[in-house]
Amino acid sequence: MMFIRSFVFFFGVLATLLLGWAALVGIPDIMISEIDPPDELERYTAEEAFGRQIYIREGCVYCHSQQVRPEGFGADQERLWGRPSVPADYVFDRPHLLGTMRTGPDLMNIGVRQTSVSWHMEHLYDPRLVVEGSTMPPYPWLFEVKRSAGPDEFVLDLPEDRVPEGKVVVATREAEALVEYLLSLDRSYDSPQRVVDNDEEE
């Protein structure tokens, strides 16, 4: 009797967890993982993928989401952060970087909203140079202070008092890759799922 009761207990406990897994992970996996990427969505280049690693390493996800909410849910649409995100937008994203915090704004389409390389560089070097009152951390280790810049190096256009006498601040490969990745964030193409929805409405 005691054995049966223990068996029922452990079986029940196992079943509850597996049920939850099936519903929240297993079934969605079968349903969504076969989605084709939209034609306009390109695979990350090696440079962009490296930049994405820097984004992960520095923990950008803890303050910036990459998901746009639909009309009527928050002000994402009014702020022109892009059309509502759909699963197809993420097929090349591993790990996913949806995020759960917006201490800073959403970055799903930052490559469309802010296209200036020098703005991004200065913003990463010291956010308060370009955004007054920003609470974003600075990332000086992505930059190098040098006597003179090499031929392909990006030199930051900083206020005089921020650069040591006779030196220049240049972006490292990491900063260049990170900016490249940020500029690649563009999901402004028509949503593949949206088109289907419209057809059904008509």
């Binding site: 967890l17 939850g20 897994w21 929240l24 992970v25 969605p28 996996d29 969504i32 993982s33 989605i35 699963p87 993420y90 097929v91 090349f92 994203d93 591993r94 790990p95 996913h96 949806l98």
Partner: peptide, 21 residues
């Protein structure tokens, strides 16, 4: 739970679902 999460392979939003599950 720990092994499913650490050693499963998922993609995109499914991974996000797994992450929060």
């Amino acid at each position: 739970l720990y092994l499913t999460a650490n050693f499963g392979h998922y993609q995109g939003v499914v991974e996000a679902g797994m992450n929060w599950w």
